[in-house]
Design a binder for these strands. Sequence first.
DNA 1: GGGTTGTGCAACCAATGGGTTGTGATTCCC
DNA 2: GGGAATCACAACCCATTGGTTGCACAACCC
Lengths: 120, 120
Amino acid sequence: MTVAEDELTLVFSALADPTRRAILERLALGEATVNQLAEPFAMTQQAISKHLKVLERARLISRTRTAQSRPCVLDAERLDAVAGWIERHRRIWADRHDRLGQHLAALGATRHDDEGEVAP
Amino acid sequence: MTVAEDELTLVFSALADPTRRAILERLALGEATVNQLAEPFAMTQQAISKHLKVLERARLISRTRTAQSRPCVLDAERLDAVAGWIERHRRIWADRHDRLGQHLAALGATRHDDEGEVAP
DNA sequence: GGGTTGTGCAACCAATGGGTTGTGATTCCC
DNA sequence: GGGAATCACAACCCATTGGTTGCACAACCC
């Protein structure tokens, strides 16, 4: 289910770059070769190659060897994993937020000791 | 709605570190001071301070000045923004995947030219 | 006022990241 | 076989990051 810690790190840092996100957006339209991907960017093909290697290592894309070109395709499941993490924490935080709201409401109502805050 | 490009970069790179994710998990239990946050980690308080500054810059947490301590609290909306991005792309990719599936099915059925792939 | 506590700032350092150029390996085209 | 195209690898550069130590500052305790 939920990805391992270091995989999360891989995916998040892969997503933490505008160029790589743009590449992913581009790949959402369909598979593409390295040169096709490099074309819209003001940088060398080698730089794009590096970015692709990062995305591949995060398993956000996979590549098939077709003759002399190596088209890239998205690996959607990977994004699911991250979405899982996000969603989990979103819920936790939301709950926390609700509890805080209730807490504040309770405060406004009557007593106000027994915070029940952190306590590690 | 959807966050700006560079904000995405900020949030994703903030999340791309196990220590910072652990801090967030810890904060999901309730607000905490810098020293409380630093305690479970094998690093100095200053290092944690730096991590907090990164999280704050990504607006994943916010800090209130209470006397001499500066407790940290989560900022849930931020995670919503990222969740939005992820979810958007998850859908796009899923669609893409379906179309590919249909495509392959169609291939198995009858003809098989007219790929309708990329075309930039 | 003086010591302790909680925190931030600055300087430094090693490692990583994002980019470049240069080059080499395949595969296609003729 | 020879040239052009597609791509990856290696070496390098510079800026950023993640960590350290050392200090300064502000607020509490006495």
